Amino acid sequence: MHDVAKRAGVSQTTVSHVINGSRHVSPQALEAVQRAIEDTGYVNDSIARSLRTGKTGTIGLSISAMSNPYFGTFVHLIERQVTDDGMSLILVDTHDDPQRELKVTSELLARRPDAILLAPSAEPERTIDAIARRSIPMVLIDRVPPWAPDDRFDAIGVENTEAMSAVVEHLVALGHQRIGLIAGKRGLYTTEERVAGFETGLSVAGRASQGTVENGVEDDELDTHAVERLLASADPPTAIIGGNNLITIEVVRQLVSLGKKIPDDISLVSFDDFEWADLFHPRLTAVRQPVEELAERAVQLLRDRLTEPNMAGRVERIAPQMIVRSSTVPHPADA
């Protein structure tokens, strides 16, 4: 830094302000410092700074299913905000496995992040305890434990139960009496909430016995026979709901392989909209999750907790939006 300041003809304090963005400097000084940094190859020593300040300038993100487009978008939006705050993001993949979640998060803790965002597995208690013992600010994202609020963390997710109930209401209004749900991985909070919403919607419509739930994930892999089991029942459904975007794509594949046409033979709804859902034929009716708002609020909750680590735990829910397209039509008997 001394060499950069000498070459640029400014003080070391000015160089520090340019590097850290901590105070406005004149355009001339900014250009001189940037040119000197380029000429000298100077790199700010983040390790030395962390030893001095006790902060690493990093945020940990522990999340699952990186192959899922929904999570990919989520990570991108969070990374952009964290970078804009002058920090770096360290990403680890939990694969939705509690043992791996604890392992990779413990490795993440060894890097001393200033805070952690966690998309919890079905059994996250040990991981949450490990983070809390380090007194590291924490926000749970996408999946909200049923025991929240908890003063150890904040949590934000989609309102799954009411949204799924609204999907059932939409299908019942179209005359569908038998509805199937291909749900996500057992035990995940999002899965349990969506199944609960499905059952609530049927109960409100007076059709509690006319819905069937199949899990679309077995041993962390998509179940390639879930739709076949649904349609093989004595009274098969006339409408199917895909529990998330990947499951919906698998449902479409299975329906095609069984020679079923959407929506002529069966109506289909996806609980998750995705970029090319509007390009399907027919265009998919879907529940659009507010991923941008979720990411923005998650980072803001983390900023608040970094400022006030001992604040009471907060839980926020954001309502998704159902987009009705052409994959849901009135039941043929009522058309």
Score class of each variant (00 low, 15 high):
106 S>Y: 04
12 Q>A: 00
177 Q>W: 10
92 V>C: 15
128 I>D: 04
27 P>Y: 09
115 A>C: 07
244 N>I: 09
260 K>H: 03
76 H>L: 12
96 D>Q: 15
257 S>L: 07
288 R>Y: 06
91 L>D: 07
234 A>V: 04
66 M>H: 07
113 P>I: 08
286 A>Q: 13
160 N>S: 13
135 S>Y: 03
235 D>I: 00
125 E>W: 12
216 G>P: 04
206 G>P: 01
38 E>R: 12
128 I>G: 03
320 P>G: 05
137 P>A: 06
130 A>R: 10
193 E>D: 15
241 I>T: 06
33 V>Q: 15
157 G>M: 02
78 I>T: 12
116 I>H: 08
132 A>R: 00
114 D>E: 06
105 T>D: 08
108 L>I: 01
310 N>V: 03
95 H>D: 14
189 Y>C: 07
180 G>V: 09
304 D>G: 03
92 V>M: 13
326 S>V: 05
120 P>T: 07
140 L>E: 11
112 R>Q: 12
185 K>R: 15
73 T>L: 08
236 P>D: 03
129 D>S: 14
31 E>Q: 15
50 S>C: 04
308 E>F: 08
333 A>P: 05
172 V>T: 05
122 A>F: 07
293 E>I: 09
91 L>G: 10
256 V>F: 10
130 A>E: 03
285 T>H: 11
22 S>Y: 09
293 E>W: 12
224 T>R: 14
217 V>L: 13
103 K>Q: 10
178 R>V: 06
190 T>L: 05
256 V>S: 01
130 A>P: 00
168 V>D: 10
58 T>L: 12
41 G>R: 08
270 S>V: 02
28 Q>I: 00
104 V>D: 01
151 D>C: 11
134 R>N: 07
286 A>E: 06
10 V>R: 13
238 T>L: 04
160 N>Q: 12
44 N>H: 13
90 I>H: 14
106 S>P: 02
121 S>P: 01
1 M>W: 00
307 T>G: 01
56 T>E: 00
102 L>I: 01
249 I>V: 12
242 G>H: 11
182 I>R: 13
20 N>M: 13
111 R>E: 05
42 Y>M: 00
292 E>M: 11
63 I>C: 10
